[in-house]
Design a protein around this nucleic acid. Structure first.
Lengths: 153, 153
DNA sequence: CTGTTTTTAATGCAATTGCATTGACATTGA
DNA sequence: TCAATGTCAATGCAATTGCATTAAAAACAG
């Protein structure tokens, strides 16, 4: 078996590799802890919260699925089905998009707003416990700035 | 409907909330980009890579499932099934744990080592493109230090 | 010892996610 | 105008993940 000629690989630096590993690990750790709190308080997952919050912030509590998708970085098909479930729980409703029959508007219901509010009391407390307790405000600012660089472009 | 008396909620600070949002978003963004590269190069997901790398580092290329679990933060049942799939691809094998019939040792095969190596050439390049290109080494070090604080305790 | 508790890994079944495709409509360009 | 292309959302089906439980073995307590 003949190996194809190998490109010379320029290794990422040790500090970059370490940062990458920590990013993965920190995300899993903190999400895991917070999700566990949400679940034990009887709430659905943070994905539901993300959608509810985006909608609540949107004009008249409405966004198109595309807009939600971009805001929360879900796959189109996953969002489509998540909205099915949320609609069947009465948290959102689908309404026609004026002037374009392909699109639709997702509107948060009063029940949806109420759930977002109730979830926040647990979610905010969890963020305090798992983030505020670990970082000063200044450090949080530094972290934000660094992560922003990763997101950009 | 009578609301139960509400605890006074101490809101997380704006900078903490922003850092938290960015952590989620940065992780999704970078994982998404890197996973896409791995997939288009015909490789399995990074979860497979994580397991292969841990095993390769372990003594004689062997670890117990518990050890892997702790290293990569997967759920026990997910790891159990992931190992099934990896075993059926010939990447790892399960061998008895001497002196404890509950446990087992997972051993990476030559094929597993080869796959880890081939994946790294793509993975490392992706890390370069999506992280090294965005952060200096110094910034990567700062990021690591901040994320470490989140993981600890 | 022997019964109880704990640890380790697997598994049945439900829920979710991923992949590929489809259907409906809108937009573009000759 | 109308064919070709692009956009938006849904869906069939496979793969994976989550949840609850189980089985087997080890550790522990009296």
């Amino acid at each position: 078996m003949q190996e194809p000629p190998q490109e010379p690989i320029s290794e990422p630096s040790a500090s970059v590799i370490r940062a990458w590993g920590r990013l993965i690990r920190a995300e899993r750790t903190v999400v895991g802890r917070i999700e566990a709190e949400m679940k034990s308080a009887g709430f659905p997952s943070l994905h539901w919260y993300d959608v509810l919050l985006e909608l609540k912030r949107g004009p008249e509590g409405r966004l198109t699925p595309r807009e939600i998708e971009e805001a929360v970085l879900f796959e189109q098909y996953n969002l489509s089905r998540l909205l099915d479930r949320m609609e069947s729980e009465g948290l959102v409703r689908r309404i026609p998009f004026p002037g374009d029959k392909r699109r639709q508007l997702i509107e948060i219901t009063e029940e949806g707003k109420a759930l977002q509010w109730r979830m926040w009391s647990v979610y905010g407390a969890a963020i305090n416990r798992f983030i505020s307790a670990k970082l000063t405000d200044k450090e949080a600012g530094q972290l934000s700035a660094l992560l922003l660089k990763l997101i950009q472009e």
